[in-house]
Nucleic acid binder design. Structure first.
Lengths: 201, 201
DNA sequence: TCATAAACTGAACACCTATTCATATTTACT
DNA sequence: AGTAAATATGAATAGGTGTTCAGTTTATGA
C-alpha cells in the first residue's frame, strides 16, 4: 500500500523531485499516460533520464503517486467547504461548487483521475467506492435527522457524484455552448435537486 | 470524416473482418487500447498479422470504427425505447433503464467509449456534445409543452447524462455493495428526479 | 477450366521506450 | 579540509510494436 518513492534529502533534490512531478502532471494531462514518455518528463523537468529512477521505481509508480496526491487534494478541498455548512442543502451546494471550481482551475485533475480506469482498474474502483462510501455516511446522517427523504443512499450517492462529475466534465472540457457561469450552473443543479424536473401536474 | 476501411468481398473475408472487430472489442475492453497489440488482435482472431492491414489502415482507424459502431448501437437502442413513450417522465425512465441494461449486458461499451478521451479528445467531445445536443432538443420540446419546469436545458442534459452514466458505471464495474436490481435503481432515480432529494420542510 | 482478383501469410523493418549502470559531480557533516 | 552519502548524467540495453511486402493460397466468374 505504501509508496516506493524515495524522498529527496537536499534542497536541490527537492526541486528536482517536484519538477519531475509537475512536468508529469502537465504531460499526462496533455498527452495521456501512454502518450507520455519518461524522457518527455525528464526533458521538460530539465534533468537527465536516469535521474527519474533516483526517486521513482517506475513510470507507473509515479502515476500512482500523482493519483493519490490529486485525490487527496480533491477530498480535502471539498471536505473543507462542505464541513463549513450545517444543512444538507448547503453541503451539497458547497460541494458541487467546490468541485466545479477545482476542475475549472485545474482541469488536469479530472483527466488524470479518470484515466486510472485504463491504467489500473482497481485504482479507479477504489477511488470511487471510497468516495461513495464517505458520501453515503453523510447522507445517512442527514437522513437520520430527517433532512432528506428516505431513499437508497448508496444509489443517491452515485446520482449526486454523477451530476457533479458530468457538470465538472462540461466545465473542464468546455463542452456545449452555454456560458459556464459557475453560480448559474450551481443554481440550476440545486433547483433540480430541490424541486425535481417536472412541473407539478 | 468517412471511414478508410476496406470492406471484405467474399464470405470468408467477411468472417475474418468480423472476427478482427470482435477480438479487438474484447481486448480493448479487457486490456485497454494501449495495452492491446495488433498481434494480440490477429492472434485472437486466428489470422496472420498482415491480414489486419487488408481491412484497416491502422490500429487507430479500427478503434474509431468500433467507437462509431458502439455509439450508434447505444443511440439506436435508447432511442427505440424512448420513442415508444409519450410523456417526458416515461421517456426518462425508459432511457435510463435501457442504458443500464445495455452496460450490464455489454460492459465493454462503457469502457471503450470513455477511453476515447485518452485516445483522441475530439472524438470524446463530439460524442458527448452530440448526445447532449439531441437531449436538449427533447427537453426543449417537453418544456414547450409544459411538462418540465423552466430550467437551462443544456445544464439539465448534462445532469441527466451524469446520473445515467454514473449509475451505469456502478453497474458495469460492479461498484459498491448494494444488489444492483435494475428496477430498484430506476425507481430510486425517478423518485429523486420527480420529488427531489429533500424532505418538504 | 483457367485467368484474374481477392485474401492471406509471417518474416522483416524501422522505430520507440522503460530501465540500467558505470562514471562524475555535489552536498552534508565531522 | 576531507570523506561518505546523495545526487546527477546519458549512453547502452533489452525488449517491444505498428506496419510493410514479396510470395502464396483461395475464390470468382466467364
Amino acid at each position: 500500500m505504501e509508496t516506493l518513492i524515495k524522498e529527496p534529502r537536499t534542497r536541490n533534490a527537492k526541486n528536482t523531485f517536484n519538477s519531475i512531478i509537475e512536468s508529469a502532471i502537465d504531460l499526462f494531462y496533455r498527452r495521456g499516460y501512454h502518450g507520455t514518455t519518461v524522457k518527455d518528463i525528464t526533458k521538460e523537468a530539465g534533468v537527465a533520464a536516469g535521474t527519474f529512477y533516483l526517486y521513482f521505481p517506475s513510470k507507473l509508480d509515479l502515476y500512482k503517486h500523482i493519483l493519490i496526491m490529486l485525490s487527496h487534494e480533491i477530498r480535502r478541498t471539498i471536505a473543507a467547504k462542505v464541513n463549513e455548512k450545517k444543512s444538507r442543502y448547503d453541503k451539497e451546494r458547497e460541494g458541487i461548487k467546490a468541485f466545479i471550481l477545482l476542475v475549472k482551475e485545474q482541469p488536469y485533475m479530472y483527466n488524470i483521475i479518470w484515466e486510472s480506469l485504463y491504467i489500473d482498474r482497481e485504482l479507479f474502483k477504489d477511488y470511487y467506492e471510497s468516495f461513495a462510501s464517505r458520501y453515503v455516511k453523510g447522507l445517512n446522517q442527514s437522513a437520520s435527522e430527517g433532512e432528506i427523504r428516505d431513499l437508497d443512499t448508496e444509489i443517491v450517492s452515485y446520482i449526486l457524484m454523477g451530476i457533479t462529475n458530468f457538470i465538472g466534465l462540461k466545465v473542464a472540457l468546455d463542452l456545449g455552448s452555454s456560458n459556464d457561469d459557475i453560480n448559474h450552473i450551481v443554481d440550476v443543479v440545486m433547483d433540480l435537486i430541490k424541486h425535481g424536473l417536472f412541473t407539478k401536474k
